[in-house]
Design a protein around this nucleic acid. Structure first.
Length: 306
DNA sequence: AAGCAGAGCAACCGCTCTCTC
DNA sequence: GGAGAGAGCGGTTGCTCTGCT
């Protein structure tokens, strides 16, 4: 809906301009979504202010951009944050803090807004329950020593379930596989089903002794290989990596400079510390530790904390 | 059934960064 | 190098939904 001011009288033009400047706010309507999607499909994204005007939307360019990026983009993934994604968020947040967009880069389809909301609603709530600051050492310790092992354990259980019941047809069902493990779908991703080992790696050197099957699609590739370890290892790599020698397979592997895992969960192995010690140190009660969302700290899990 | 509280999430705001002229 | 516009990012707000009393 192009507006040609030059075809009208001055008063009409001014009226039109004033009308354009009365920007709408609040929830987007289906019609507005449709207009925005149509316009971007035809003309592409960018230049949001002029896009808004040209498309005939009474929204600010910023608002259009946000709506597109967080909601209308075809590759936006909606729905529950998976266990793997939760683990990833905790890990990456411990490295980068509130760099939501950077964290979002590692969770394809998730937006920075969504991750930020997750952090604020779930993680900060949990910190509140523990009566400690989300940035405190106390809370970071809980994350590292209690929450993350718990997540890893749950991921292991899920992985075991998958391998013991239905073999996954990697070639035919790549997207659902990615959904099951909740792994990034960009770059090359390796997932070991049936054992706790899950590897996310874009430039990972394949262990020579492992037998692997690989499938790929437009999003990347996924590789399955035989079990050699009971550890859960998450290896990340991206551009600008450094190398770490892997003692297990005596082979050099590449790790990104920016992704040396601060918590250790995404490095080689991890330790399960004495939880009672941490609890004692921080004087946390069962109630404090047991009550939270995400089904991670329900009452059934109290045994774990004891 | 009504009222209330809390959770979840979409959208907005303000600041900063980047790019262009 | 500086100004202005556009874009991006993180923090905050406010609306809606759900569950509890």
């Amino acid at each position: 809906m192009d507006v040609h001011y030059e075809d009208r009288s001055w008063s009409n033009q001014i009226e039109e301009i004033e009308k354009d400047q009365m920007k709408r706010s609040g929830p987007w309507t289906v019609e507005e979504d449709f207009i925005l999607m149509n316009y971007i499909t035809k003309h592409g994204e960018g230049h949001w202010n002029s896009l808004s005007l040209s498309a005939g939307l009474k929204r600010t360019g910023k608002s259009c951009r946000l709506r597109w990026l967080n909601y209308l983009r075809p590759d936006v993934r909606r729905g529950n944050i998976t266990l793997q994604e939760q683990l990833l968020i905790l890990e990456l947040h411990s490295r980068w803090g509130n760099r939501w967009s950077k964290i979002a880069e590692y969770l394809p389809g998730r937006t920075d807004n969504e991750i930020k909301n997750y952090w604020r609603t779930r993680v900060q709530k949990y910190a509140k329950q523990l009566k400690c600051d989300v940035n405190s050492k106390q809370f970071k310790d809980t994350m590292r020593h209690i929450w993350m092992p718990r997540l890893v354990e749950k991921i292991q259980v899920e992985a075991a379930k998958i391998s013991s019941t239905t073999p996954i047809e990697l070639d035919n069902n790549i997207n659902s596989c990615m959904n099951v493990v909740g792994l990034p779908t960009t770059g090359s991703t390796k997932v070991e089903f049936g054992s706790p080992q899950v590897v996310i790696d874009e430039f990972y050197d394949k262990p020579e002794q492992s037998s692997a099957t690989t499938s790929s699609d437009s999003f990347g590739s996924i590789e399955q290989w035989s079990n050699t370890s009971n550890q859960v290892d998450y290896y990340y790599n991206n551009n600008g990596y450094n190398s770490v020698n892997d003692a297990n397979n005596n082979q050099e592997q590449c790790y990104p400079d920016s992704l040396i895992s601060p918590t250790g969960y995404f490095s080689h192995g991890f330790d399960f510390p004495d939880i009672s010690e941490i609890r004692c140190e921080n004087q946390w009660s069962d109630d404090q530790l047991a009550v939270t969302s995400d089904n991670l700290w329900n009452m059934d899990d109290i045994w774990f904390l004891q």
